[in-house]
Design a protein around this nucleic acid. Structure first.
Length: 537
RNA sequence: GCCCCUGUAGCUCAGCGGAUAGAGCGGCUGCCUUCUAAGCAGCGGGUCGCAGGUUCGAGUCCUGCCGGGGGCGCCA
């Protein structure tokens, strides 16, 4: 919560009480004005509270304004009423200069850091693609989103554990082994098997005495790990589904479920009575023949996460797993947990376009573009920001040709260029032996150019942007903010020289600190996205 | 049929219930004798899918319809 907002909110509350308005609204809206010519901040309380006060909105606004003018809140230079009854506050530029000071004093480490999570231990599971082949480009979205979300959660006071669930057991594993074995033997791909080029490559790579059932998943895992590593995404834990059979975790979960009284046998299979938990039908836990279903494994896995001490679990899944959400939540509930402790983020799928054509992704059909190829070609920064600029709730069109060939006007470079320009200013200042005074010795009051003030306005918003991105699980809000800050810096850079002819000593000193605060803002934003901040380009 | 996401400029997308809806790309036009032109500025471009409703106020919330994507397996 920014200081200004608190100041204005409490002043307005006081004024409302003073006018005898009953009841005073619980929430007093105070927001940044999007009409800079009218004011820096505004409030619409008068519109909301008009009825309760028995006045017309405009009249209430006028009275509030008159009352506040008697003893104006800190920073406020002018209070006006406009439109249907908006209160507009003009502030001394000093409020923005104080933003600069705060940014510099708190620095990259401390600015825009929150304690929303109070150190809560949160397990974030993402990607978790089956180890049946290389990752395709679309998986990059989950990797990058998940990692950025973790970074944001960390900055907001959560203890984060990144985890990848490895479905190294079950029907698909058998199909992978059979597909590789068949390719090795020069036989046709088995029914429902995998037939990408990589199957042939791997078959050729495999040693004669290797067991495909063991070797192939390991090969796939190595490939997946490498692709994610090249994107800069790393996990604390790679959790094996298969390991839960030997460890007894599956049996333990099943025993707990039985204890809930919701388990029964039918048609040779073992079922969970999920209809008792609000689902349209019951679910199978053990298939005919005793093999655990994916659902049982996943319930056991989530049970394990809870037993490891995490109090909140966040799973990031593609929308194609939507059907599994209620089942898993029901399973967690059957184990006695509040389903709210398990939060599932569903991301919309990525459509890949190549040569103007939609590429249908499917490992079994073998027509897919590998994530590793794309990262090799454009680099992790481009790949990351491309994924992160868009809300996870909208289907993303990833145009390979645009991302690759026109990489020069990718937003990444626009943002990084701002950072490089800042570094360049520092270099030149050093070369020219421009003295640099400590912030407390510098007069910031000369920072009054619209470009300078815009820059500070953006910087002032960062704490809220980070908190909002955290609460709404929306890293793209940080991405769009970074782009805006970079844009404002380029405008400043063009119009306001930091040193040189026609720039006074005082101006140089103030602007050097302005530039430094911008660097801090860019560094924080880019770090939250996992994008590098280069000193030269 | 039911469930989730979505429909905003030619294209790709932003837009906490607030005032005159924004950015990038593409098109046209200007700006390099000072810190990096991977930049800046200007012009053009919109019935925010449609219809109701709630509200002082709706691109934003609710309902219905239409279009797009995904889901509803003893697959994962």
């Amino acid at each position: 919560m920014p200081m200004i907002q608190d100041i204005l909110t409490s002043s307005l509350r006081g004024a409302l009480v003073g006018l005898g308005v009953e009841p005073v609204p619980e929430r007093i809206p105070v927001e940044r004005s999007n009409r800079p010519e009218l004011g820096d901040w505004s409030s619409s309380v008068a519109l909301a509270a008009a009825k309760a006060s028995g006045r017309k909105p405009r009249d209430l606004a006028d009275e509030l304004a008159a009352k506040l003018r008697v003893d104006p809140p800190a920073y406020v230079s002018e209070i006006t009423v406009a439109g249907p009854g908006f209160l507009n506050f003009k502030l001394h530029d000093r409020w923005l200069h104080d933003v600069l000071t705060e940014v510099v004093e708190k620095g990259v480490e401390g600015y825009a850091r929150h304690d929303i999570g109070h150190g809560e231990r949160v397990n974030v599971e993402f990607v978790s693609a089956n180890p049946t082949g290389p990752l395709h480009v679309g998986a990059g979205r989950w990797a990058v989103y998940g990692d950025a979300l973790c970074r944001i959660l960390e900055r907001c006071g959560h203890a984060i554990h990144r985890e990848y669930y490895l479905n190294d057991r079950g029907v698909q594993m058998g199909l992978l082994a059979a597909s590789v074995a068949a390719a090795r033997a020069g036989q046709p791909t088995p029914e429902d098997g995998y037939q990408g080029q990589y199957i042939a490559d791997w078959a050729a790579e495999m040693a004669d005495d290797a067991d495909p059932a063991v070797w192939a998943p390991q090969r796939a895992l190595a490939d997946i790990e490498a692709a994610l590593g090249s994107l800069g995404v790393e996990f604390e834990t790679w959790f094996s589904e298969k390991s839960m059979i030997a460890s007894g975790a599956i049996d333990a979960a099943l025993a707990d479920l039985r204890a809930s009284g919701l388990v029964y046998e039918k048609d040779g299979a073992t079922w969970l009575r999920t209809t008792d938990l609000g689902l349209p039908k019951d679910e199978v836990l053990l298939k005919t023949g005793g093999e655990p279903t994916y659902l049982l494994g996943d319930i056991a896995y989530h049970r394990d996460k809870f037993t490891r001490g995490f109090t909140r679990l966040i799973d990031i899944w593609g929308a194609d797993h939507h059907g599994h959400v209620d089942r898993l939540k029901a399973g967690v509930q059957a184990l006695g947990h509040d389903p709210a402790e398990l939060e599932i983020v569903l991301g919309q799928l990525v459509t890949i376009v190549k040569d103007g054509q939609v590429v249908r992704m499917g490992r079994r059909s073998g027509t897919f573009v590998e994530l590793a190829e794309v990262v090799d070609e454009v680099g992790p920064d481009v790949a990351r920001l491309t994924f992160l600029l868009q809300s996870i709730d909208t289907r993303q069109t990833f145009d390979l040709d645009a991302v690759v060939s026109k990489s020069m006007d990718n937003p990444v470079f626009y943002v990084q260029y701002a950072h490089a320009r800042i570094a360049s200013i520092s270099r030149v200042a050093a070369e020219k032996n421009v003295p640099r005074y400590p912030l407390e010795m510098v007069d910031l009051s000369g920072l009054d150019h619209p470009r300078e003030l815009d820059l500070l306005r953006s910087l002032g918003e960062l704490p809220e942007v980070v908190a909002d991105a955290c609460r709404t699980r929306a890293p793209h809000k940080v991405a769009t903010w970074v782009r805006e800050l970079a844009g404002r810096f380029h405008g400043f850079y063009h119009d306001c020289y930091v040193m040189g002819e026609g720039v006074s000593h005082e101006q140089t000193q103030a602007r050097l600190w302005l530039v430094e605060s911008t660097r801090i803002g860019l560094a924080i934003g880019l770090d939250l996205l996992g994008v590098s901040a280069p000193d030269s380009m």
